[in-house]
Write a protein that binds this DNA or RNA. Structure first.
Lengths: 154, 154
DNA sequence: CCTTGAGTTGAAGGGGACTTCAACTTGCAG
DNA sequence: CTGCAAGTTGAAGTCCCCTTCAACTCAAGG
């Protein structure tokens, strides 16, 4: 029985480049045993971890936060389906929230087109307090002061 | 009548930092006239451009692509509401698609939890061909070869 | 044995999206 | 006029997420 996977195997099965897997290991996202010859051998359960990382990234979560989440898994025993479910449920909420915000953005976009202004003071920027963030790095949106007109260009 | 805005005014009205506005200018996302003393003066219509940039980023579109889109606006005349609507409609489709994929991801996540595997071969990775991408930089997902088992860990 | 493909490391590179800094110059209120 | 906030530039720095490279070492088939 195949107890463990080489890095090449894990890479092709997970769809994540070997270099990324090594990087993830440095960040503490995945773990590997070593052979006598110092090569990585991954337990099959690492597939789940990698999958979880990838999913989480899609949700717009940083690797650091993902690591923190993974650290909450029991270290002593192999995580059960229930353990994973707990993590995933939390993520699910974030996904839902993000979906909600994107839907709102889409609808607001329609509204802006209708109004012809696309000024976003009224439409989107004001909603970003709700943080649709975690999308791109460095974008730390600075909200305009509250004493602004609702729709500057209308 | 206030014909033009200083960079500080544009920054506070758009909620985008001055440094970002200058950066956007270098990338050709916004334009500014100059005073005799070489200071930027933005036409009011630039507010729309900035707003469009910000919205587009939320949709997960890179600045380069946004620039390309903006370049399709008529250069000779001031873009009309219809011009903007055309751009926004295209983006709207992308938003919808992204929402659809996120919803699918959420539901798949439930499915994975149910199945207890979270392997994603069957669940998510295979759907990523549809490109939910544009989320994080550098992630260029490599799909696993087609001859893989559906759910490696079940 | 030998070769060849798979793995190893640390350091450096790279892209995207900005921010920060230093050293000036402009613009405007008093 | 003076003084001070606001603006200008280019270069460099930052953060995140990796990839690439060089120089080796390991593992396994012929």
């Amino acid at each position: 029985m195949k107890e463990s996977l080489t890095i090449g195997q894990l890479a092709s099965r997970s769809g994540v480049a070997q270099s990324a897997l090594r990087y993830y290991e440095r960040l503490g996202l995945v773990r590997a045993e070593r052979t006598s010859g110092n090569q990585r051998r991954y337990a099959r359960t690492e597939l789940r971890r990698v999958a979880f990382v990838r999913i989480s990234q899609q949700v717009g979560i940083s690797l650091e936060e993902i690591r923190d989440a993974l650290d909450s898994l029991p270290a002593s025993r192999t995580p059960t389906a229930a353990d994973w479910a707990e993590l995933s449920t939390a993520w699910r909420a974030r996904l839902s929230e993000k979906i909600r915000l994107m839907t709102k953005l889409r609808d607001d976009l329609d509204g802006c087109i209708g109004c012809g202004c696309l000024s976003l003071q009224r439409c989107t920027l004001s909603n970003l307090e709700d943080k649709l963030s975690g999308e791109g790095p460095g974008a730390r949106l600075m909200l305009p002061p509250a004493d602004q007109p609702a729709c500057a260009d209308c």
